[in-house]
Design a binder for these strands. Structure first.
Length: 724
DNA sequence: TGACGCAAGTTTTTT
DNA sequence: ACTTGCGTCA
């Protein structure tokens, strides 16, 4: 390949050029963080179009998020002429499957107007199932049943084939069967179904499989390490003939095994695609040398990885900053102050990102940022589309499309209040069993029992639905329908109740209406699909001058000049639920690795000495992962006294430890007092202070090896001894 | 039928 | 600390 020849290869290093121009057979690009792998993937697409004379509609590119898909499309639009970028299929597995199933709904055997049931909807269905099967929802928690079912689906296991080893499994199998029936009865598909049904469609209809595999001549996948079994099978079905699969992966960034992702798909790829060309991308363009070295030291202990020798041409950079805070509030204050300092030194707020393991941790950080009047934007959290007012409005729209959706029906039949109570609803549910759905039962009731109280209350609701349905048949688009619903139910007056919260809710509704208005002519079913598959509405506000707050999971694929990783404590990272098995622990380590490698110039690691769980504050030990970062790379800002012995079992969250919090204790020690420590022996108290509502004791031990140490009086094995 | 008060469970991570 | 679900009462 003549490297000066092609403008598409300009500005790429030798490894990247080789990756872009690799054979059109199966290719696996194993790429380190910050190696420009998404850029390589994008250039590869352009390369196939220009050098292999691929038609744009022959390209199928799978990204991990909708955001990544949008960015890739925008990039391609800049690189290519005209509307080429629009003709390509670029999206997540879920989005691509949803569209395909809509088109091939007849062959797949369900309604073209199927609805996508999100996590909340799934939970509602499962609660119904648990009730129907007379199960105890304490022993069989709907959420954990759903979890088991999701894993079964990812492995393409049907309810009938669900492996039953225990009684619990048997219940899961029954719930699974019933869940699928209920879902289909509501013309609903959950996220997993989108994948599973597409695979089934291709397996059962060889002609369709043939059709799509011929059409999608060039299949490219980003973040391949996070594909699950169903996704892998789908790729195999689509590339069975031509084998033009181009996968980009990094095993060290596999962080989604809990939802069925299996990085061993990389090994499967090697077995299933003879002639697979493997290319390593080892040059990092993102991070300073110190950050890269620290990240590599951190990830090194993990087994089963392809060793990559990452290097960068960026300068050495500053050491990482390790900060130990007293509690989460102080940790957050430290972060806020540091950001303010950085800003005064010339950085922008948008250069900074603050990461954490669990969404619950954002709260303390938000409070500190608000207090410091630092603007921030929260990624994830309570998703826009799962807010109550939005879900309610969407339920109305779903009912227009599909009145037999009982979940939506029950959600909004009495929102806003229209005098339909438990009794009426219960009779609708019972009638629904025989008539097929609550909606049909309602129609029946209005006919047969027209004078009853229930019928009187239901009639306006039924009339509204009929009216909207007629509008849709006449060709009304989403914008029209949304406006019609808002007007008919008097939503504004209902939501704007004078409180700030009410105002905020109404603003959310307006935001949704704006989304609908942006796409005139958009069909309802497409709008509802997009809404279910897209997490956030504020994608336009991405350029705002604000600090970004996000979980380590949602940090994947992003980069920031300055990164704070907070809550580096045992029980949090690694998370307490991940301590049981080595592979879960390895995934926690990868999660930390992903976070570290987001940083370009500065990386802060923080942990707290105490952390609150469920409003209960308990001591916290620094994360074991910190021990794997060579001290030479760390600049320590401040050290707090460290517990000599854990007072609690770190592996178990505080709320699970049936340990009543001892009442607040008065000061137990005074200077000059003789004490004995279980480990350090005899000593004398130098100082005892009450700080943050607890007693910190500083003891000088007679055994010179121990020297002077500070403990938390309530937790240290320290006793006063009588003097003789 | 709806409002209110109390008990219980909750926190991994997301398409 | 916070939400959610359930039971009692007007």
């Amino acid at each position: 390949m003549n490297n000066s020849a092609h403008p598409l290869l300009a500005g790429l290093n030798a490894q990247q050029q080789a990756a872009v121009g690799a054979s059109d057979g199966p290719v696996l690009v194993l790429a380190g963080p910050g190696s420009g792998k998404t850029r390589v993937l994008t250039h590869r697409i352009a390369w196939m179009l220009q050098e292999q004379h691929a038609a744009p509609w022959q390209v199928l590119a799978v990204t991990f998020t909708n955001k990544a898909a949008r960015e890739m499309r925008e990039r391609l639009a800049r690189m290519l002429a005209g509307d080429t970028a629009l003709q390509m299929s670029i999206g997540t597995f879920h989005a691509i499957c949803a569209r395909l199933l809509r088109r091939e709904a007849d062959a797949a055997g369900f309604s073209r107007n199927y609805l996508i049931f999100d996590t909340d909807d799934q939970l509602a269905v499962m609660k119904q199932v648990v009730k129907d099967l007379n199960l105890d929802d304490k022993r069989y928690r709907p959420a954990s049943l759903l979890n088991a079912i999701s894993h079964a689906k990812n492995e393409l296991t049907s309810p009938a084939a669900y492996p039953v080893a225990t009684y619990y499994d048997q219940v899961v199998a029954r719930a699974y069967a019933r869940y699928q029936e209920t879902l289909r009865g509501n013309e609903g598909l959950d996220f997993d179904d989108l994948l599973v049904e597409t695979v089934k469609l291709f397996q059962e209809h060889a002609d369709l499989c043939e059709k799509y595999s011929q059409r999608y001549r060039y299949v490219l996948v980003d973040e391949f390490q996070d594909t699950n079994m169903a996704q892998y099978l789908l790729l195999r079905l689509l590339t069975g003939e031509h084998r033009s699969l181009y996968a980009v992966a990094d095993e060290d960034q596999s962080i989604y095994s809990w939802r069925g992702a299996d990085y061993r798909n990389i090994t499967r790829l090697r077995g299933d695609y003879p002639g697979l060309v493997e290319i390593l991308l080892e040059e990092n363009y993102r991070s300073t040398q110190i950050i890269l070295d620290a990240a590599q030291a951190l990830i090194a202990p993990n087994p089963d990885r392809t060793i990559k020798r990452l290097f960068t041409r960026k300068p050495q950079g500053l050491p990482l900053t390790l900060h130990e805070a007293y509690d989460e509030a102080e940790e957050a204050t430290f972060v806020a102050r540091e950001i303010e300092t950085l800003r005064r030194a010339g950085h922008a707020y948008s250069d900074c990102a603050v990461m954490y393991r669990t969404n619950a941790q954002s709260r303390a950080l938000e409070e500190a940022l608000v207090y410091a009047t630092i603007p921030y934007r929260l990624v994830g959290g309570t998703r826009f589309y799962s807010r109550r007012e939005i879900k309610d409005l969407l339920a109305y729209l779903r009912l227009i499309l599909n009145p037999d959706d009982d979940i939506s029906f029950q959600r909004v039949v009495n929102v806003p209040r229209r005098g339909i109570g438990k009794t009426t609803l219960a009779s609708l549910m019972t009638l629904g069993q025989t008539h097929g759905s609550c909606y049909k039962a309602m129609l029946h009731l209005l006919q047969s029992d027209a004078g009853s109280r229930g019928a009187k209350a239901l009639r306006p609701f039924a009339e509204m639905l009929a009216e909207w349905h007629a509008l849709r048949v006449q060709g009304a688009d989403v914008r029209d329908l949304t406006n019609a619903v808002l007007a008919a139910i008097g939503y504004e007056g209902y939501l704007r109740d004078g409180t700030d919260e009410g105002e905020a809710r109404w603003e959310n509704v307006l935001a949704l209406r704006a989304v609908a208005a942006e796409a005139p002519g958009l069909a309802l079913e497409e709008f509802l699909t997009d809404v279910a598959l897209v997490a956030d509405v504020d994608e336009l506000g991405a350029e705002v001058q604000a600090v970004t707050l996000l979980t380590l999971h949602s940090a994947k694929g992003l980069e920031f000049p300055i990164v704070f990783i907070t809550g580096l404590e045992e029980g949090l990272l690694p998370h307490s639920r991940s301590l049981d098995t080595p592979h879960e622990l390895a995934e926690e380590r990868r999660l930390f690795y992903v976070g570290m490698t987001r940083a370009e110039d500065r990386l802060y690691l923080t942990h707290a000495f105490r952390r609150s769980w469920y409003g209960e504050s308990s001591p916290a030990a620094p994360s074991r992962f910190l021990d794997d970062i060579p001290p030479a790379m760390l600049g320590v800002v401040r050290k707090r006294p460290v517990l000599t012995q854990p007072a609690t079992n770190w592996n178990v969250p505080a709320w699970r430890q049936k340990r009543p919090e001892p009442p607040a204790v008065a000061q137990r020690f005074a200077p000059g007092q003789a004490v004995r420590h279980r480990r350090f022996g005899d000593g004398v108290v130098r100082e005892s202070v009450i700080e943050h509502g607890e007693e910190l004791v500083t003891v000088l031990f007679f055994d010179t090896g121990a020297g002077e140490r500070t403990f938390l009086a309530t937790h240290a094995p320290l006793e006063a001894v009588s003097q003789h």
